Each structure stands twice: as C-alpha cells, then as structure tokens.
Amino acid sequence: MNETTAGDGRVIDAPSDNWVYRFLPRWLWPFAQLARWDRPIGWQLLMWPCFWSAAMAANVAKAEQQFYLPIFIFHLFLFFIGSVAMRGAGCTWNDLVDHDIDAQVARTRSRPLPSGRVSRLQTKIFLALQLLVGLLVLFQFNTFAIGLAIASLLVVVIYPFAKRFTDWPQLFLGLAFSWGALMGWAGMFGNLSWAAVILYVGAVVWTIGYDTIYAHQDKEDDALVGVRSTARLFGERTKTWLWRLYGATFLAIAASFALAGIGPVAYVGLLAGGVMLVWQILVLDIDNPDQCLALFKSNNRVGALIFAGLLLSLLFLPG
C-alpha cells in the first residue's frame, strides 16, 4: 500500500487484504491498527520465545516422567492469546508515547493517533482492555510465573522512551519481547533454570538483529527527528553486526538445549533456522526498505523452525 491509499482509513505499511479490513466494522479499524492486528508479525515474534521455552520445558518434563500433554497444549494456547493481547497493548502504549514523533515520520503518520481517527482517551481505554485480557491469561499460571511476568512490565514501560536516550533501543525491545523465553519454563516448573536464562539471552540478541533490519526502513526520517536506533548506529557495518548478533543467537540457543539435555532432533530445527538467518545477512540491502521489511518478517519462519525442532524432539521421546 502507498501513501495515497492511506486516506481510506488504513495505515500506509499494513497489508490491504488483511482480515481486519474484510471482517471488522469500519469503526473498529483504528483500534485494530493500534493493536497492530493487521500486522501479525509482531505477536508472532513475541510468541515464539514463549513456545520455545514451553517446548524445551516439556522435553525435560517428559524425560523426567512429569509431562502432561493437555497442560502443554493449554500453555501454548495461553501464550498465543497473551502474545496477541500484550503485543497489542505494547503497541498501543508505544503510540501514546510516540504520538508527536509518529506525526513526523512518513511511514507512521497515517496511524490512528497522529491521523486523528482516535483520541488519546479512547486509546488509553483500549490499552486498559488489552491489559485486562493479558492479566486474565496470566492468572492461569503459577504464582512464580505471575510474579516473573509482572517484573517484565518495567522494561515494557521504558522501551518507547529508549530511542530518546540510547543508540540501543533494540536492546530494550529484546529484553521485553524475549521475556517469554523465561515464562514457558516458569509456567511448567514454577522456577527458572540456566537453560531458560540462556535461551532468553539468545532471544534477546535475535530480536536486536531482526529489529535492526526493520529499523533501516526509517533511518532517514529517524535522523531528521532525532530518533536513535541500532540501524543508525551500525550503518554500513550492519552486516558485520548481524553476523555477531545472529551468531550469538545460534550459540546461545544451542547452549540452552545442551544445558536442558534436549535430544539431537531439536538441533535440526535450530540448524534450519540458522541457515535462514545466514540467508538474511547475505541478501540484505539496507537501502531497500521493502526488502528490509520482507527479511524482518521472515523471522517468523525462523521462530517456527526452532519450535518445530523442539516439538519433534518431544514426539520422539519415550513416555
């Protein structure tokens, strides 16, 4: 979609054939856009670390004869609903904080708040409703997991401001977006392990990598309005940094599998995901916004491949 089509109530960079525009009444469109329901890649990338952690924990539980399939499936369902709700709440909060900045950036000025299609009060009410859904999901878990999730809110609140005081806002995004790598394990066992912590580290550096690619879409506008990012920081050295970040992602996730005693089948999925990360680096053109967006979205397949490996490992385990 281009800027000339944004006047029909849609946003410039959202797919025009999304279900939001085919099934929801028009008065709901601005709220769906605040939550980014028309761009599912966000909740998908938030969900995969949750799924990895839950599947890794399930492998360990099954090896210890403590695995219950209905609980595992229920946890995956909760993480799916929670990811949609909390990603939507995070985006809504981000839009409230960035209201003035979004009005100055070509890609974001058609969003509901800067375009005037919703008020700040309506946005705050919608934010509260999404947080309520997230809270209802959270209360289905054990006390340790609930406390752990609440601890993440500090990073979530800080993230929209990070681009104002650091060249590494993607680090803050990674810290918030990867929290599910801790939650899956905590939801299963009611504690944390080094395996889950190292998985979290891997997810954080993965997020920094893919969001750096994403941020290259806006680097010119960001420079004009003073927004900082790793895309601007790395510049022409982006590929070098991606080798480091994605390499650390692969090594950290492999180490977490080893610490948890995960079977060799899981590493097949990780290797396939690693190949996709290498492909992203090799083909990346940081001056091609459309390609940057496509490569960013391809990380959904990376997440799915890693989860598939863990799921296959679980199926091959006896018990």
Rank of each mutant, 00 (worst) to 15 (best):
L224M: 12
V268Y: 06
N18K: 03
G42K: 02
V204G: 03
F126R: 03
T230P: 08
Y267C: 03
V265F: 12
P15R: 14
R117I: 01
V225W: 12
A215L: 09
I150T: 03
A272C: 15
N191R: 13
S119Q: 05
V283H: 01
L138T: 07
G202M: 09
T212M: 00
T230R: 01
R39A: 11
L138G: 08
A54C: 10
D218R: 02
L113V: 11
G274Q: 00
G180C: 09
F126C: 02
H75A: 14
R232E: 12
P114G: 11
V97N: 02
L171H: 02
F139T: 15
L282F: 15
A57I: 13
K239E: 04
A149W: 00
A223R: 13
A258H: 13
R107I: 13
V11L: 00
R120E: 15
A294H: 11
I262N: 06
F177R: 04
L310C: 07
F250C: 00
C50P: 14
W52Y: 01
C50E: 08
A203M: 05
L175N: 09
V283P: 00
T240A: 10
T166I: 11
S119M: 06
I71P: 01
G82S: 04
K219S: 08
R10M: 03
L171G: 04
L135T: 14
W48Y: 10
W179S: 10
P289H: 14
A223L: 13
V265T: 14
L76V: 06
W48S: 02
T207H: 01
W243P: 00
G180S: 10
A215F: 04
R120Q: 14
